[in-house]
């Protein structure tokens, strides 16, 4: 799922223009699961803005099913019309679709979208995938070196890996290739690490230009 985190409230307040009516819009899927932009956070944000001494008239809070589907915007069309600016607590995709759909309205992002990741426990999320469009997880026993290694290397742990941790942050960041080495040892597929992996084809990632996915078989 997409994992995001709330921007510090001070930063948001600096970005908010002095407007008559402000709409705070939440999203009920990914950002609710990662406790950043759900219905509860919308209410807390509204109260915080009302209490801050910003010269903002009325603050209304709303939360829709998903901000990345045009159809769900119909419910809030009336509210948006009256309000002068929207603070969207959705991931980057939601904020952009919102500003496309309501052309003339100023949309301000309330969250920083971090990564595609997994829920590791209450309050703990871990980045798992870059979305490079060319998955090699079969070679490395199910651990992605592009995401879990801070240099995205293709060939084995670099000289800085020390007792299983990466050199850039030896306390918190595991060395991706150390995990791959342990995993391949268990699957006794260590020869995968011996072969000199060729450089990846980055054209299928964002380097090949912003991507679209068109499925003619489903298009109307």
């Amino acid at each position: 799922m997409i994992v995001a985190e709330q921007k510090p409230i001070g930063e948001i307040l600096k970005k908010l223009p002095e407007v008559e009516k402000l709409l705070v819009l939440g999203c009920d899927t990914c950002v609710t699961v990662c406790l950043a932009g759900g219905e509860k956070e919308v209410k807390v944000m509204c109260s915080a803005i009302r209490m801050a001494d910003k010269k903002i008239g009325e603050v209304t809070g709303f939360s829709i099913e998903r901000q990345c589907d045009r159809e769900f915007f119909k419910e809030i069309e009336a509210v948006v019309k009256e309000s002068d600016a929207i603070l969207s607590l959705a991931c980057g995709a939601g904020v952009q679709m919102l500003s496309d759909y309501f052309e003339g309205k100023l949309v301000i992002p309330g969250l920083n979208t971090h990564f595609i990741g997994s829920n590791e426990g209450a309050g703990y999320w871990l980045e798992r995938c870059l979305g490079c469009g060319d998955c090699m997880l079969d070679i490395t026993g199910g651990i992605c070196p592009k995401t879990r290694c801070s240099k995205g290397l293709m060939n084995g742990p670099c000289g800085g890996s020390e007792n299983g941790m990466c050199e850039i942050d030896p306390l918190n960041t595991e060395c991706g290739w150390y995990l791959i080495y342990e995993r391949l040892k268990k699957l006794n597929m260590l020869q995968n690490m011996m072969t000199n992996q060729p450089p990846r084809d980055w054209s299928r990632a964002h380097d090949g230009g912003p991507r679209k996915l068109l499925r003619e078989d489903i298009q109307p």
Partner: peptide, 27 residues
């Protein structure tokens, strides 16, 4: 060489490349 991660130096905000790594570079 693979090269040290940019977070060690004086431009930690820089975008890293690592298009190829040291072993691919040797080849």
């Amino acid at each position: 060489l693979t090269g040290d991660h940019q977070s060690f130096g004086n431009h930690p905000q820089a975008k890293q490349v690592y298009d190829i790594d040291s072993i691919q570079l040797i080849k």
